[in-house]
């Protein structure tokens, strides 16, 4: 019995000693899964001697639940999207940003600043932007595809992957029928639901974390997925074409924000500044090709960016009408 206890204590000590010491404290970060390459974080830890406790989430709602259900000061830096920033501001969950602490703020592309969810960027600084796109494997699908309605073709049975996100998927159904993607009108939503039920037979899977894998392994030939995922699939197989749907598409802008009561603000500013640094920032969008929000590293030209802003919409807060979406989601699944 004693031997067992000694072994246990030994293991405990081993676990305790394994963490290196960092002179300048730590920072608690929650970010989307697959957003910042691991090397970039460990490089920051070495350069600044600050420990980064890095956790991930896969939806804005999961992030909100985590923040709302944890004590003030548990997390410092998070990366909510547009509508979630607005919601968090309205619930007094965020700290104001002191932009003077972030030298590299001047490198941000003005097109991404002063958006309506945070008009003066008092609380948020743009991080990365994403748009939903249709990705098609041209090795196997030759038909012309421009609109979401082209996906209803029964030829594509079990051949489509969609994002596992009720706002994006129902929003897409609304846009396919010519409605606003944030509509809360019951009649329009009913039409969208019927449209989705028609599409359901063609859907192989809903996945937000890595839908590209489905395309890359030929599990499906069509996906309605985020642009970075589509780009990565395209890099793997040049015959995967990226199409901006004519019905309109979703734009999502993720931001650096500080959580109310953050204990390590100074370190968080250092981390943001580091991630906005020209070389580091380029590295991030090289790994995960979302739309870069800085001027020095733009990865689409200005005209395309204008077009994207023109044809896309943000997901908006719809208050208690979310329950309508939730019910449709439960009905189609």
């Amino acid at each position: 019995m004693k031997k067992i206890i000694i072994v246990f204590i030994g293991i405990l000590l081993l676990c305790g000693c394994s963490s290196k010491s960092y002179e300048n404290g730590e920072i608690n970060v929650l970010n989307w899964s697959s957003y910042i390459p691991y090397e970039i974080i460990s490089n920051f830890e070495k350069e600044y001697s600050i420990k980064v406790n890095y956790g991930t989430y896969s939806s804005n709602e999961e992030l909100l639940a985590k923040i709302a259900s944890s004590k003030n000061g548990t997390y410092d830096l998070i990366f909510p999207s547009d509508y979630m920033v607005e919601l968090m501001i309205s619930r007094d969950m965020l700290e104001k940003m002191d932009k003077s602490q972030i030298d590299n703020f001047s490198n941000i592309n003005p097109m991404f600043l002063n958006q309506k969810f945070d008009p003066n960027n008092d609380y948020s600084i743009p991080f990365l932007a994403a748009t939903s796109v249709i990705a098609v494997n041209r090795d196997r699908v030759k038909d012309e595809i421009n609109s979401y309605n082209d996906l209803l073709n029964s030829k594509y049975k079990n051949n489509i992957v969609l994002l596992d996100d009720q706002r994006i998927v129902i929003g897409m159904a609304l846009q396919a029928n010519g409605f606003d993607m944030n509509s809360t009108d019951s009649k329009k939503l009913e039409i969208a639901k019927k449209w989705l039920l028609k599409l359901y037979g063609n859907v192989k899977a809903f996945d937000s974390d890595s839908p590209k894998t489905f395309l890359m392994t030929n599990e499906v030939d069509i996906g309605v997925i985020w642009n970075a995922e589509a780009t990565l699939a395209h890099e793997d197989n040049k015959n995967i074409e990226i199409i901006y749907p004519s019905d309109g598409f979703a734009l999502s802008l993720d931001n650096y924000v500080l959580v109310k009561g953050a204990k390590n603000k100074e370190n968080a500013y250092k981390f943001i500044n580091y991630l906005l640094r020209h070389d580091i920032n380029r590295e991030i969008t090289n790994y995960y090709p979302y739309l870069n929000t800085t001027i020095s590293n733009m990865n689409v030209d200005m005209n395309d960016l204008f077009n994207i802003f023109l044809n896309s919409s943000y997901v908006e807060n719809i208050g208690s009408d979310i329950s309508k979406y939730d019910k449709i989601w439960a009905e189609i699944k």
Binding site: V29, Y54, G55, T56, D209
Partner: peptide, 15 residues
């Protein structure tokens, strides 16, 4: 924060 266990780590990279 910072308390990923092995099953949680696997779950997060699974897909």
């Amino acid at each position: 924060p910072g308390s990923n266990t092995l099953p949680l780590y696997i779950y997060s990279i699974m897909k």
